[in-house]
Structure formats: C-alpha cells, structure tokens
Design a protein around this nucleic acid. Structure first.
Lengths: 201, 201
DNA sequence: ATTCGGTTAGTGGTCAGACCATTTTTTTAA
DNA sequence: TTAAAAAAATGGTCTGACCACTAACCGAAT
C-alpha cells in the first residue's frame, strides 16, 4: 500500500482547474467559472472549490472580486513572500543574522549600481531632506533605481523585521555623509562608509 | 473610501496563526491546535480556518495528518512546483528578476566565503557525486558553510520558485569545473566562472 | 501483571445548505 | 428614452452534519 495515497479533493480540484485553464487557453485577466459552476463541473463541494481557490489566491495566481468573479492574474512570485518569511524566520530570528543580511543586500545594491555605467548618482532626489528614516528612504530609492523588484522586496522585508525587534537608530549625520559620498560619485568610499556604519553593531 | 479595504477572514486567520506560532515559539514538527480549537480561539468558522490552513499547506509550511492534527514543517519550496509552473510560464520579466537575484545571492555567498579566513574549501563533501542537482546541492552546502540561516533560506526560497518556472538545467561538467576551482582555492576564478554560467541566460 | 483486542474520543476530510454583501443585469416606471 | 427599482449572479461566511483515520483507554484472556 502506498504511503501518500490519499489525494485530497482540493488537490484534485487544483489539477482540474489547471487543465481547464490550459484547454481554454485562459490568460491574465480572464475569468474563471464561478465557484458554484466549478462545484458542479468538477464534482466537488463548494467548500472544497474554495479551499483550492484560496490556496492559489495566496500564491498570487488568481484574484477574486466580490460580486464579479475569479480572475487569472499576472503571477508575482514574491506575492506571498511576506507570509512565507514570517514562517521561515521563526527559527532564525537572531538579530545578528538579520542585520548581516540587510547589510549584505545593501552593499550588494551599491556595488551593482557602481558597476552600471548609465547610473547618475546626482539624480538622487532631495526629498530625503524631509525623511523621518533616512536610511530606509535612501536605500529604498537606491533599490528602486537598480530596478529589480524582487531584490527590493527581499530587502524591504528584512528591513521590516529588524524594525520590529530593534528600534535603535543611527545618527542622521552618518547618512548625510553617506549620501554626499554617493552623490559625488565616490561609490567605493560610500561602500566603505556604509560598512563602517554597520560595524558599530 | 479605500479600495482594498475588505480583508477576508482567512487572511486574518493566517495572521493570527502566525502570531500564535511566534508567541508559543513553535518550531518544525510542533503541532498546531485542532481546526475546531482554532475555530473557537480565533473566532472564525471551521470553513475559514480550513481555507487558511489549506493555503499554507499548499505553500508547504504545514503538514496535516488525518486523525492526528496539523504540524509545522520544514519549508519545502519544491512543494507547489508543478502547480506553479503551469500557471507561470508566461511573463518573462519576473523570471529574469528571479534569476538575477539568485545569481547575486550566490555570488555574494562565494565572495563572503572568500573573505573569511578560516574557510577551507577542500572540506567540500564529495557527496556531491551522487547529486541529481549539482548546482542546488553545491550552493546549499556553501550557504550552510557560511552559516547565516536567513541568507540560506532566502536563497533557497528564490531557488525553489525558479525551479517551478524553469526546468532548464546546466551541464554537469560546468559545475564540476566550478567545484574544482573552489576546492583548489581559486575563489576569484570560481566567481568569474560562476558568472559565466549565468551569462548564457 | 501482561498482553491482546475492541471501544471511544479526538481529529482532519468532505459535503449540503443557508444567509449576507457586492456587482451586474434585467425589469419597471416616469 | 431614461432613471430608478428589482432580480439575478457571484464571492464571503457560517453552521451542522457525517465519514475516515488515529491514538488512547479499558477490560478480558492469558
């Protein structure tokens, strides 16, 4: 007898929905049959249909609109990252590791920007003047400049976690100095300075 | 009036479960309260509880055993792979972002190992000989060697998502070469070689 | 006292049906 | 013709029921 024989209804439903999408060649924005229709067509209770839909909704594969229906949606792999991270981090939540990863990501971002030829650091918006959290807003802008959404998302996530367990802040003057180094094009010095800021932890 | 105001019950439940896990410091293998208990404690119907649990089950965060209960489980990014791949094959931009982040994380790992003085690359286990996925197993070992759990988990997460949308593999010989470079201590060359592997994408 | 076997309580798995909230469509009335 | 009202369709949620599986309990035979 096989060990993992029992396949749950909602799993079956997922497969059938998959096939349905392939058969009908549905793409982004297209509407799936209603939950009640699916219930009949796939021979499962509406509760099971919903369990399946809720699962792929959390994955970010569909979007539901009350009163309208269920729609395919552009897949965003990092849709559920927030949720995942909370679970993933439950054993790992040491302050040191968080800070280290955050630092490494930021340094990596600076390095990558340094390597890209068409980056003009002087374009950094002056909006930073009105910022309450210079560090976060500065790197938010840097990550956005680099352009990789996932990269930004991961950093943002780590940053959020740190702020929830550690409220210590760094003197603003440090970041003003860092910003000046960046804007004047001295990226290597900026990277060193950035590292020095973290060394105090 | 806000547009996305309505938060669904199952999403609330997910948050509450998250908090529960953190409060009670549950870890892999620990049991969650039964669905009926959760239903009472979290003030939601069992149906909603199940929608939440099914969702994170699909993500691979929990495991349910009929007649026993619901248990936390080591996160397995490979879990929902087949499902995702069918949905995801369109939309290339995110794939590129995923690959880029994966590459950057790996390069970062190599770089950090290079910087650490007490690392002896010759200690790389030969177990890799029996590997089905040289790349993954190699870097799994490297990340473990570096020792930052969070760093490893993030990489693992990204890797899992990538495998769900891209089954293309790289010739084993490339990794044998890479491993040789690492083991012989030529880390800088290894980093270059690693980059060259990714350039083909 | 020990062991075997059945009973029972707890748990996840599934379903049917009801009602609400929101949106769309249809019908009705001005 | 048009605007308001009603109806239908759809997702959101809850309740209660029943089944299948597991583990713990308990009594009877050894």
């Amino acid at each position: 007898m096989t060990n993992q024989s029992k396949v749950k209804v909602y799993q079956e439903v997922l497969n059938k929905i998959r096939h349905f999408i392939e058969e009908h060649e549905l793409t982004d924005g297209d509407r799936l049959p209603s939950e009640r229709e699916l219930s009949e067509q796939l021979n499962a209770s509406r509760a099971s249909i919903r369990e399946a839909l809720r699962a792929i909704e959390l994955l970010g594969l569909i979007e539901t609109r009350h009163g309208e229906g269920t729609f395919l949606r552009t897949y965003k792999p990092y849709h559920s990252v927030e949720l995942l991270s909370t679970f993933v981090l439950r054993e790992v939540k040491t302050k040191h590791e968080l800070l280290e990863v955050k630092f490494l990501l930021e340094q990596l971002c600076l390095n990558q920007l340094l390597l890209s030829e068409n980056w003009d650091p002087s374009n950094l918006r002056q909006v930073l003047d009105e910022s309450n959290d210079l560090h976060t807003d500065l790197f938010l802008q840097l990550f956005q400049t680099y352009g990789n959404q996932l990269f930004l998302k991961i950093w943002h996530l780590v940053t959020g976690f740190i702020q929830s367990i550690d409220t210590s802040t760094v003197k603003e003057t440090h970041y003003i100095e860092l910003i000046n180094l960046i804007k004047s094009g001295q990226i290597n010095q900026a990277i060193d300075y950035h590292a020095s800021i973290y060394r105090q932890f």
